[in-house]
């Protein structure tokens, strides 16, 4: 089918531009998710008066379906909170909030999995709470949850296809534009699907490789 060349290859700039936006949104969302997840997790574990709030938020962000969350953040939040002001921001914010719920739980499991003996050893050596946490506990948490964190990134990428609905010009939205222009969905949509699948596949491969290396080096069970 010469159609492939005409419809896909010749339009690669359009598609790649979309892919660029997708990567941008996902990267920002990922960073937000890690920060948010960390914040929620630490609040839940160590800030007693705010515990119920943290737990509620974690559950809320995790349990609400991403599409519903996206529409809610994109259309309700600007009216109520004044933010997000653009759909691009709504996109990464919604994706980030959803994943922060999952990561908060991942971090919590990681923290609780660090053997108490580690803390005992650190305190006995005279280290403070903060030092123990940042030098002993958190590094282990990061290492043991790395595979889950990478996995969450693939979730973000897969969910990002929905931001096309709120008119963010990502890969999905660009390919839909092309279909509307050319009225020939087969090659364009198949190529788009293949692109997403390949992208996510590569990320998960990298995650597996990372998990193997970590297991090898540190003997930590990957979660």
């Amino acid at each position: 089918m010469g159609n492939w060349e005409r419809l896909v290859w010749n339009q690669r700039d359009v598609l790649l531009a979309g892919l660029g936006v997708t990567i941008e949104v996902c990267a920002i969302a990922f960073a937000a998710a890690i920060l948010g997840g960390l914040l929620l997790c630490l609040t839940r574990l160590y800030v007693a008066p705010l515990r119920p709030v943290a737990i509620f938020l974690i559950e809320f962000f995790r349990d609400t379906p991403i599409f519903v969350q996206l529409m809610w953040v994109a259309y309700v939040w600007p009216e109520v909170f004044g933010f997000p002001n653009t759909f691009f921001n709504a996109g990464w914010l919604a994706l980030g909030l959803q994943s922060s719920g999952y990561l908060a739980e991942t971090f919590r499991a990681g923290i609780e999995a660090v053997p108490p003996g580690q803390r005992d050893a650190a305190f006995s050596a005279g280290m403070s709470q903060t030092q123990t946490f940042s030098r002993i506990v958190m590094p282990q948490v990061v290492l043991s949850s790395a595979p889950s964190i990478v996995n969450q990134f693939t979730v973000i990428v897969k969910s990002s296809t929905l931001i096309s609905v709120i008119t963010v010009p990502d890969l999905m939205s660009q390919s839909q534009k092309l279909v509307n222009v050319w009225y020939e969905p087969i090659e364009i949509l198949t190529a788009t699907a293949a692109l997403y699948i390949a992208f996510v596949f590569l990320i998960s491969l990298a995650g597996k490789y990372l998990a193997d290396r970590l297991r090898h080096r540190y003997g930590l069970a990957a979660s």
Partner: peptide, 8 residues
Amino acid sequence: RNAPDYIM
């Protein structure tokens, strides 16, 4: 497993 729901 690697395919986004929406594109599928």
